[in-house]
Protein backbone atom coordinates (compact mmCIF):
# COMPACT_ATOMS: atom_id res chain seq x y z
CA UNK A 1 0.00 0.00 0.00
CA UNK A 2 1.08 3.55 -0.67
CA UNK A 3 0.72 5.98 2.21
CA UNK A 4 1.36 9.74 2.04
CA UNK A 5 2.09 11.62 5.28
CA UNK A 6 1.76 15.33 5.76
CA UNK A 7 3.11 17.39 8.63
CA UNK A 8 4.22 20.99 8.94
CA UNK A 9 7.56 20.81 7.17
CA UNK A 10 7.76 17.13 6.26
CA UNK A 11 10.58 16.58 8.78
CA UNK A 12 8.95 15.21 11.91
CA UNK A 13 6.75 12.82 9.97
CA UNK A 14 9.95 11.61 8.32
CA UNK A 15 11.11 10.37 11.72
CA UNK A 16 7.75 8.73 12.40
CA UNK A 17 7.97 7.05 8.99
CA UNK A 18 11.13 5.19 9.98
CA UNK A 19 9.27 3.68 12.92
CA UNK A 20 6.37 2.74 10.69
CA UNK A 21 8.65 1.24 8.06
CA UNK A 22 10.37 -0.92 10.70
CA UNK A 23 7.00 -2.11 12.01
CA UNK A 24 5.77 -2.87 8.49
CA UNK A 25 8.89 -4.89 7.68
CA UNK A 26 8.46 -6.78 10.96
CA UNK A 27 4.88 -7.67 10.07
CA UNK A 28 5.78 -8.40 6.46
CA UNK A 29 3.59 -5.65 5.04
CA UNK A 30 4.64 -4.13 1.72
CA UNK A 31 4.59 -0.37 2.06
CA UNK A 32 5.60 2.69 0.13
CA UNK A 33 5.58 5.75 2.35
CA UNK A 34 6.54 9.35 1.89
CA UNK A 35 6.27 12.48 4.01
CA UNK A 36 5.66 15.99 2.72
CA UNK A 37 5.17 19.43 4.23
CA UNK A 38 1.83 21.23 4.01
CA UNK A 39 3.09 23.19 1.00
CA UNK A 40 3.69 20.17 -1.21
CA UNK A 41 0.64 18.18 -0.19
CA UNK A 42 -1.73 19.40 -2.87
CA UNK A 43 0.62 18.48 -5.70
CA UNK A 44 1.94 15.25 -4.19
CA UNK A 45 -1.53 13.83 -3.50
CA UNK A 46 -2.12 13.68 -7.26
CA UNK A 47 0.61 11.05 -7.68
CA UNK A 48 -1.52 8.00 -6.93
CA UNK A 49 -1.61 7.30 -3.17
CA UNK A 50 -3.89 4.84 -1.39
CA UNK A 51 -4.35 6.98 1.70
CA UNK A 52 -3.23 10.31 3.14
CA UNK A 53 -2.39 10.54 6.85
CA UNK A 54 -2.39 13.96 8.52
CA UNK A 55 0.00 14.53 11.44
CA UNK A 56 -1.92 15.56 14.56
CA UNK A 57 -0.14 18.91 15.00
CA UNK A 58 -1.54 20.16 11.68
CA UNK A 59 -5.03 18.73 12.24
CA UNK A 60 -6.43 22.27 12.27
CA UNK A 61 -5.78 22.26 8.53
CA UNK A 62 -7.48 18.90 7.99
CA UNK A 63 -10.37 20.36 5.94
CA UNK A 64 -7.97 21.71 3.32
CA UNK A 65 -6.06 18.45 3.06
CA UNK A 66 -9.27 16.50 2.84
CA UNK A 67 -10.62 18.77 0.10
CA UNK A 68 -7.46 18.16 -1.95
CA UNK A 69 -7.58 14.41 -1.29
CA UNK A 70 -11.30 14.22 -2.11
CA UNK A 71 -10.62 15.58 -5.59
CA UNK A 72 -8.61 12.45 -6.38
CA UNK A 73 -10.76 10.18 -4.17
CA UNK A 74 -7.99 9.34 -1.73
CA UNK A 75 -9.13 8.73 1.86
CA UNK A 76 -7.62 11.22 4.29
CA UNK A 77 -7.33 10.63 8.04
CA UNK A 78 -5.84 12.31 11.10
CA UNK A 79 -3.20 10.29 12.95
CA UNK A 80 -4.19 9.76 16.62
CA UNK A 81 -1.96 11.62 19.11
CA UNK A 82 -0.59 8.43 20.68
CA UNK A 83 0.35 6.89 17.34
CA UNK A 84 2.48 9.87 16.29
CA UNK A 85 5.46 8.83 18.39
CA UNK A 86 8.72 6.96 17.84
CA UNK A 87 7.11 4.25 20.00
CA UNK A 88 3.79 4.28 18.18
CA UNK A 89 4.76 2.26 15.10
CA UNK A 90 2.43 -0.68 15.63
CA UNK A 91 -0.49 1.56 16.61
CA UNK A 92 0.10 3.67 13.52
CA UNK A 93 0.18 0.63 11.27
CA UNK A 94 -3.05 -0.63 12.86
CA UNK A 95 -4.69 2.75 12.27
CA UNK A 96 -3.69 2.77 8.61
CA UNK A 97 -4.92 -0.78 8.10
CA UNK A 98 -8.20 0.03 9.79
CA UNK A 99 -8.70 3.15 7.68
CA UNK A 100 -8.10 1.12 4.54
CA UNK A 101 -10.33 -1.69 5.74
CA UNK A 102 -7.52 -4.28 5.82
CA UNK A 103 -7.14 -6.69 8.75
Amino acid sequence: MKVLFVCSGGLSSGIILQTLQEEATKQGVQMKIKSVGTEQFETEILNGWDIAMVAPQVRHRYQQFKAAADLVQVPCEIIPLQAYSPLGGSMLLETIKRCLGID
Binding site: C7, L11, S12, S13, I15, I16, A55, P56, Q57, L81, Q82, Y84, S85, P86, L87, G88
Partner: peptide, 10 residues
Amino acid sequence: INEPIIFGAP
Protein backbone atom coordinates in the same frame (compact mmCIF):
# COMPACT_ATOMS: atom_id res chain seq x y z
CA ILE B 1 12.76 18.90 15.60
CA ASN B 2 10.79 17.87 18.66
CA GLU B 3 7.49 16.36 17.53
CA PRO B 4 8.89 12.92 18.47
CA ILE B 5 9.29 14.19 22.06
CA ILE B 6 6.07 16.18 22.18
CA PHE B 7 3.97 13.21 21.06
CA GLY B 8 6.32 10.51 22.30
CA ALA B 9 6.99 11.47 25.91
CA PRO B 10 4.19 12.59 25.62
